[in-house]
Amino acid sequence: MALVGYARVSSVGQSLEIQEKALSEAGCEKIFAEKRSGLTAKGRRQLEDALDYVREGDTFIVTRLDRLARSVGDLFAIIERLQGKGVAFRCLQQSGVDTDSSTGRLMMAILGAVAAFEADIRKERQLEGIARAKARGVYKGRKRQIDAHEIRTLQEAGMGPSAIAKKMSIGRASVYRYLAKEPQ
C-alpha cells in the first residue's frame, strides 16, 4: 500500500516545488509531476504514467482538485479508473475530498463542478474583454510572426518552400499556406 502523488502546473514558468514538497510531507513515496495545461487529461504523460503505476490498495494524492482535472468529466473518468483498480483518492488542501466516504465523493463532485464553472467564467470574461477591445479598435490579435516579404523575396530568388522554412525557422506548411494565398 503506497502513497503516490501527482503534481501539475500549467506553464513552464511556474514551479512544481510547492506541490512536490507537500506531497513528500504527506508521505508520498513516488511523485509524478508535469508542466501541462489541465484543461484536458489528454496528452498528460505523467498523469497517464501515474495512473498506470498505482496498484490495488495504493492511495493517489494531489494537493488540490484542479491540479488533477479542470472538467467534471475528466475528474470522474480519472476517479473511476482509480476505483476500478482498487486505488483510493485523497486531496491534501481540500480536506474531506476523497473516495473513502459518500460525503467525500459528494464534496469531490461539488468542487469539480465549481472548478469547471470557474474555468467557463474565466473564458467568458476573456472573450468579453477581447470583444470590448476590438470594438474600441485596440485589439488587433496576435502580431504576425512571419515576414511575408521575406518569403516572397526568397521564393523569387529561386529558393523552394522547404529551404525557405529552414532558413526562416518556420514550418514548411506555413510557407505553403502563404504562397497559396498570395498571387504569383
Results as ranks from 00 to 15, higher is better:
L65I: 13
K134M: 11
Q94H: 05
G160K: 13
D66G: 09
M108D: 01
I121R: 06
K21H: 10
R55D: 05
M168F: 08
G137I: 10
R44G: 09
E17Y: 11
A7V: 05
A115H: 03
Q126K: 11
I31P: 09
Q19T: 06
G137P: 08
I170C: 10
Q94A: 12
K123F: 08
G5A: 06
M168G: 07
R44F: 09
K134Q: 13
R67D: 08
A69K: 02
M108Q: 07
T63S: 10
M108H: 04
Y178A: 03
M1N: 09
G96D: 04
G57L: 04
D52F: 01
S10Y: 04
R70F: 01
A69N: 08
R36L: 04
G104W: 06
C28D: 06
L16M: 06
L106T: 11
L127R: 14
K30R: 15
A26Y: 15
S37I: 08
M168H: 09
G112S: 02
S174F: 00
R36Y: 12
A69S: 13
S37T: 15
R90P: 00
F117Q: 12
E128C: 00
A2S: 14
Q46H: 10
A22R: 12
A157Q: 15
L51R: 12
P183M: 10
R142V: 02
F76W: 14
R67P: 05
K30Y: 06
I78C: 02
V4W: 02
I78W: 02
V54K: 06
E25W: 00
S174T: 12
S169N: 15
F117C: 03
E20N: 13
M107L: 15
K167H: 13
Q46F: 01
A115E: 10
F76D: 02
Y53Q: 03
K42M: 11
A33D: 04
S71Q: 12
L51I: 12
E124W: 01
T99D: 09
D100P: 00
G43R: 06
D49G: 09
G5P: 07
A77Q: 11
L179R: 03
L65V: 04
E80L: 00
R152Q: 12
L23Y: 07
R177G: 02
G57K: 14
Q14L: 07
I78Y: 03
I151S: 05
F32T: 05
A157E: 15
K181C: 00
A33N: 10
L154K: 14
R122W: 00
A33P: 07
E20S: 08
I18T: 11
M107P: 00
Q83L: 13
I146N: 02
I78F: 04
S95T: 12
M108R: 05
G84I: 07
I79Y: 02
A163K: 15
K181L: 09
G160T: 10
V72I: 09
R132M: 13
V62W: 07
R136Y: 06
R144G: 12
I164D: 04
L92K: 02
E156S: 13
A69T: 08
G86P: 05
A133E: 03
L92S: 04
A133W: 06
P183G: 11
S15I: 01
V138Q: 14
